[in-house]
Nucleic acid binder design. Structure first.
Lengths: 162, 162
DNA sequence: CACAATTGAATTGTGCACAACTCAATAGGC
DNA sequence: GCCTATTGAGTTGTGCACAATTCAATTGTG
């Protein structure tokens, strides 16, 4: 631990003050990129009447079919405090139905309406537009996703396991 | 434009339905990673009494000194609708002062109090902890920041220039 | 100088994210 | 069966993000 691989710059040799600089903080570039995506999707999804987060929920439903709130939350790492009002808005928009499960009355199953299912057709063209807008190559996208996945996993472990 | 570089898989050969899968969407991994950072910082900054976004504002002030709301917003890509209430909370916490500029009465200059400036000492150890929690090497972090920077720039251009 | 256009903050309204809590349904131990 | 613990949604409260609007200060132009 006191010696570092020779190929890597020695992180411990960098002073605290340098690491504190805004430009050097991963959180900032990630935060900015995430919000830049938000801005793009706000426009791209306007026609569909969806927000960024509602789109993510619809992706799960299109892909996996009817399922309880809990399962959607597990897939997207969102809790009921976020999903309950969001799903009510999707219900008001006529895109999903919310029904208590018969097997377990605590659970609420979310199901697409025919309108919600039909919206998928119009969403098919969105991802390609996004990829084009990023200006990244497919390799870069795949590499980015791999690194981000590890990042999320590592941060999740630190948070949960502490 | 109709032919792709031979080293890159042909993006246009991938069907729409495949691109629509949640796992293949960059926005999702980015969104998840950004929120994972939020969770980490929530804990790391609890002692300092700062939120994630407040920390970013403090970074700017620690680094650049007193400056108008507009300049902070430019640095972080945030508008007055976000910054005004945030800065009022920082003022209530005794970390900053808000004063109308004498040169331009429209502008409000944000300045650190001595307490706010003193908080920097306690924040110095935060970035190293974050880097450790990510589990990434320094090269990976630098590569990530480079890609994210290009991403943000490209998405910003699409949004602004359209 | 007068007046229109622009600029910088602030406000309002909508929606997301999450902690903390409530409440009902279920599961387990006795 | 009874009682406790757990689980799944929902609610409440705080804070961030952003569009749209308001308003005062400033700038530009005639």
């Amino acid at each position: 631990m006191t010696s570092v691989p020779s190929a890597s710059p020695d992180l411990s040799a960098i002073p605290d003050a340098e690491l504190l600089r805004l430009d050097h903080q991963v959180c900032f570039s990630l935060h900015a990129a995430s919000r830049a995506f938000g801005g793009y999707y706000r426009r791209a999804l306007k026609d569909l009447g969806l927000t960024y987060s509602q789109y993510l929920v619809m992706l799960v439903l299109w892909e996996q079919g009817p399922q309880p709130v809990k399962a959607i939350g597990g897939r997207l790492h969102l809790d009921s405090g976020t999903l309950s009002p969001l799903l009510k808005r999707l219900e008001s928009a006529g895109l999903v139905r919310r029904e208590r499960s018969r097997e377990d009355e605590r659970s609420v199953v979310i199901e697409l309406t025919s309108e919600g299912a039909g919206l998928r057709e119009r969403a098919l063209s969105v991802p390609r537009g996004v990829l084009a807008a990023t200006g990244l190559s497919l390799e870069e996208v795949l590499g980015l996703q791999e690194v981000l996945g590890r990042l999320t996993g590592a941060l999740g472990e630190v948070v949960d396991g502490d």
